[in-house]
């Protein structure tokens, strides 16, 4: 199977493109996901991903064909609407945030499934390939889809690089950021929007159900290796990239396997390794540190 993957990677330009774009997607979600995790917005990412489905379906119903960019604009619109609704519900009612997220997520996803069922039952609906958006199918992406995804992912990585210092302060201490003269409201809105965009470009390859995992698992794994945000972001990007590459390659050569689950399973593998061997707070590191402490105490005769 490894051989098969190699020859596919070496000789098929289509595979190369799909792999490159899922790699960029993995980096972008690792990076943005690190910020989202520290900002305690992991669940928002999940809600946005699920809420993208009705947007895709509505956009498809309008234009009647599968043009990725327009479908993604629809997905962004409903994704943003969902984040706005969550904020509105938490700010104006006594409903707590977790309940608000849960409600918005399921209602939007439910509407998405209703619309999707309707589309696939239309005459040529099942050729639309829209059901690939549920679990993701990187191999089903056309050359144009790949360009779109790679371009947007590259842009996201660039913006995160440029605004690294401002976002770090904004997330660590928003009041101090405001006192330093940073436009806190603008930076917040920009971050939420880019988080939505990250989720949206990922749903074709990873699928709406599992996209949040690609956002969060690399970020959590990276935290076990370092106590510095810059390194955490780089490691999370790396883990995201590996997961993206592995998922795309395996699903391209083995027909019928959805990409999303493979990406998430790879990322979960990285998590287990990080949780065990991570040099900053991994299991082994913790146990060794504990043993050294106990022995030192014994040595001192306490």
């Amino acid at each position: 199977m490894i051989q098969e993957m190699w020859s596919s990677l070496l000789h098929q330009p289509n595979t190369q493109w799909v792999v490159l774009s899922t790699m960029l997607l993995g980096i972008a979600s690792g990076v943005l996901g690190s910020f989202a995790l520290l900002k305690k917005q992991s669940l928002i990412g999940d809600a946005v991903a699920h809420a993208a489905l009705p947007g895709i379906c509505i956009a498809y119903l309008f234009i009647g064909e599968k043009q990725l960019l327009i479908l993604l604009i629809g997905a962004t619109a409903t994704g943003l609407l969902a984040t706005y609704l969550i904020q509105l519900i938490t700010a104006t009612t006594r409903i707590k945030k977790d309940a608000a997220i849960c409600m918005v997520l399921s209602v939007f996803f439910g509407m998405g499934i209703v619309l999707l069922t309707r589309i696939t039952r239309q005459a040529d609906g099942n050729k639309s390939g829209l059901d690939n958006f549920i679990f993701g199918q990187a191999a089903a992406m056309t050359r144009n889809d790949v360009y779109t995804m790679a371009g947007v992912a590259g842009g996201l990585i660039l913006i995160a690089f440029l605004l690294f210092k401002e976002w770090k302060l904004l997330i660590f201490d928003p009041d101090f950021a405001k006192n330093s003269g940073l436009p806190v409201g603008m930076l917040e809105t920009l971050f939420s929007t880019l988080l939505v965009v990250t989720v949206v470009i990922g749903i074709q390859a990873v699928g709406v159900i599992l996209m949040a995992a690609l956002l969060i698992i690399p970020a959590i794994s990276a935290r076990y290796w370092t106590d510095r945000l810059s390194l955490m972001v780089i490691i999370a990007g790396g883990i995201g990239a590996c997961s993206g590459i592995a998922g795309a390659l395996i699903s391209t050569i083995s027909t019928g396997l959805a990409t999303g689950p493979l990406i998430v399973v790879t990322a979960a593998g990285c998590f287990v390794v990080s949780f065990t061997f991570g040099i900053k707070r991994g299991l082994i590191q913790k146990l060794t540190a504990h043993r050294i402490r106990t022995e030192r105490l014994k040595g001192e005769g306490i």
Binding site: K168, L169, I171, F172, D227, M232
Partner: peptide
């Protein structure tokens, strides 16, 4: 938060 003392001071 993944940061050290010097880095927090630099935020100033």
């Amino acid at each position: 938060f993944p940061t050290n003392a010097l880095d927090v001071i630099l935020m100033g």
